[in-house]
């Protein structure tokens, strides 16, 4: 849901909110997730709309691994 929000904001060119939502995913610690899934990485510094959308795609590839969304996501590029 957080990456959906990030993508929506990015596509609406609201880059501040897009980066905030993206970094909610990137910096999330496993302990703070009900499933124990969190990247725990430093925040992204993506600046342009394209950079943020690329980061969202990359994180969807990882976060939704083997979840069946890859085809839809690839079509959106």
């Amino acid at each position: 849901m957080t990456l959906i929000k990030a993508e929506v904001y990015a596509r609406q060119n609201d880059l501040v909110n897009a980066l905030t939502e993206l970094n909610n995913v990137v910096t999330k610690q496993p302990a703070s997730d009900p499933y124990g899934v969190g990247a725990g990485l430093p925040p992204s510094v993506a600046a342009t709309q394209d950079d943020i959308l690329n980061e969202v795609y990359k994180n969807r590839c990882i976060e939704l691994y083997m979840s069946g969304f890859k085809l839809e996501d690839m079509e959106k590029i």
Partner: peptide
Amino acid sequence: TLGLPAGLQPDPADKRLPFY
């Protein structure tokens, strides 16, 4: 790398990898 191409590959420190 989860089989992803360069540019999309996760950071080696990514804590999501062990889960998947």
